[in-house]
Design a protein around this nucleic acid. Structure first.
Length: 523
DNA sequence: CGGGTTTGACCAGCGC
DNA sequence: GCGCTGGTCAAACCCG
């Protein structure tokens, strides 16, 4: 089991170490510098650093390097190495130097070439850094827009939403929306009329700030909900209903400022369903298993993990295999990390946090706030991911279901979903083409498209979710529209009415989603 | 030996 | 009040 956790991080490590070394890597150990950090350093480093590397490679060239520096001022300005050579040619043959002198000059020529190459690499790094910044900015924007949409919809919902007491009606509406909703009918977060001030403010926040905002937003929306088991589905969902109950003093203590002690409610959770033979999916974080239980209705044990990347990190996750299809691994996350994360983990954390915030922003008035609704833009060429939201449970959960086939018909997916859940697509096309084509791009262990189409091996949520966000320019609009639809949809206000009420997960005809009261589905 | 997993025990919420 | 269940704890154990 312990090897599973270590295997999670091999893609982040330097690649040469064993399991324990990988742990050290993630803790920022001095000996095994994570590859990702190396990349960052490479993006941000200076030419001098690379020169130092060259010096390490050729320490005996130090004098020559110094000689190069003597002409470096002109060389540096001439970014084209060819220009440098031209200048040298003017000096050497035409000046009538002796052959020995010329031979003495040759190392300098090579060094100048190297210098030019370094400059070229520097420029390239600058471009890459800009690209990375742009990606990060876009991601921040997306999150900000998501948050804005959530806030707006939450406000609207609080103001005038009428409750749909009939869960089945909600389901029908959900289906209609799923089949018929178009982006044009949904909230366009790109619309400048939508809270420009707030939007600007939100868009300007960094990733971490976004996380913080979302966390605060989420905490603000924490509600006191009587713990009630309304779902009859097995396994994870039942556990999820009680997860985060205030009975864990240590957890509350660990949450500290993040969660008021008098608030008995828990955080929203984000579940991930993925096909994987591996016991765990790689999410970029380091986890320690602290318990295992046999859940009712599921022969597969449920494992409990907590984040160990920092002391007191409140993030926990549950891992359990689907009873009906043991190739499906369900991982449920809760909480926000209170420490820096590796890039991959950051993407995952942000995504789950956004999803959680999305849930909570719409579930503040009642625990069924997000009972059902749907969105399925017909403009989406690939419906690779479906998201199902549900707040019918005592605390809302959003599940990314990555188990569906890419070729799966959305209608079929609809029929597979046993509960009136909110569904919307998350296009998972892959990494940005500019990254794919770039030599500095290190493809993940499993590129997202492979993850989508592949039902085996180690599915990486980070890769998949990140790819979902990064790959499709329509994603922002689509997601916002989905959120909009979700928030606007009629919701069940009856405490006994929930998506799974009377529709136990794992019903015949819904083999793909046997245990989800809340499900993101992936195609 | 340190860090992780295993596993039985314990606690608290919930339903009957 | 009692039993069931989920979640957590912590001692024992394992492993590199």
């Amino acid at each position: 089991m312990e090897n599973q956790d270590r295997r999670e991080f091999t893609f982040l490590g330097s690649g040469g170490g064993g399991g324990g070394n990988n742990n050290d890597v993630l803790r920022g150990g001095p000996h095994n510098k994570p590859m990702m950090i190396k990349e960052v350093d490479f993006f941000s480093n200076s030419t001098s650093e690379r020169s130092a590397r060259n010096n390490n490679k050729k320490p005996h060239d130090h004098d020559d390097e110094t000689a190069v520096k003597d002409i470096g001022s002109s060389t540096h300005q001439v970014s084209d190495p060819a220009g440098v050579n031209t200048g040298l040619n003017l000096h050497t043959p035409s000046s009538g130097m002796l052959k020995s002198a010329y031979d003495q000059e040759r190392p300098n020529i090579e060094l100048i070439k190297l210098r030019g190459e370094l400059d070229r690499l520097h420029d390239e790094n600058g471009k890459l850094r800009g690209m990375l910044d742009q990606i990060t900015k876009n991601y921040s924007e997306l999150q900000g827009q998501l948050l804005m949409a959530m806030q707006k919809q939450a406000q609207e919902y609080h103001q005038g939403q009428k409750v749909e007491p009939n869960g089945m009606s909600s389901q029908r509406i959900s289906a209609q929306q799923i089949m018929d909703t178009r982006p044009s009918t949904a909230l366009d977060v790109n619309d400048p009329s939508v809270s420009d001030d707030n939007k600007t403010q939100e868009l300007s926040v960094s990733l971490s700030n976004t996380m913080e905002v979302m966390s605060k937003e989420r905490d603000r929306h924490m509600i006191k909900v009587p713990r009630k088991q309304t779902c009859t589905e097995d396994g994870l969902d039942q556990s999820s209903q009680s997860w985060g109950s205030p009975k864990s003093p240590k957890l509350d203590e660990a949450k500290g400022e993040e969660q008021a002690p008098e608030v008995p409610f828990r955080k929203a959770r984000v579940s991930v369903r993925a096909r994987s033979d591996a016991p765990l999916i790689s999410d970029g974080c380091q986890w320690r298993k602290y318990g295992q239980k046999m859940a009712k209705g599921n022969p597969c044990p449920r494992a409990y993990y907590r984040c160990t990347m920092a002391v007191g990190c409140p993030v926990r996750k549950q891992v359990q295999r689907c009873a009906e299809d043991k190739t499906i691994l369900t991982t449920t996350y809760e909480g926000n990390h209170n420490h820096p994360l590796p890039p991959a983990a950051t993407a995952m954390a942000n995504t789950t946090s956004a999803a959680a915030a999305m849930l909570l922003s719409g579930s503040t008035t009642s625990k069924e706030a997000l009972t059902s609704s749907g969105f399925f833009p017909s403009s989406m060429p690939y419906v690779s991911t479906m998201a199902t939201l549900s707040a019918s449970a005592p605390f809302p959960t959003i599940t990314l279901d990555l188990t569906q086939s890419p070729s799966c018909n959305p209608v079929q997916l609809l029929h597979r979903i046993p509960s009136p859940s909110a569904t919307f697509p998350l296009p998972l096309h892959g990494v940005p083409p500019q990254l794919l084509g770039h030599p500095m791009y290190f493809p993940p262990k499993l590129p997202a498209p492979q993850v989508l189409g592949q039902r085996h091996s180690h599915t990486s949520m980070v890769e998949t979710v990140t790819a979902a966000i990064a790959s499709d320019p329509n994603f922002t609009t689509a997601l916002a529209a989905a959120i909009s639809t979700i928030m606007r949809a009629p919701r069940s206000n009856d405490g006994s009415t929930n998506p799974t009420n009377g529709v136990p997960a794992g019903l015949p005809g819904s083999p793909q989603l046997p245990q989800s009261c809340t499900t993101f589905s992936t195609n």
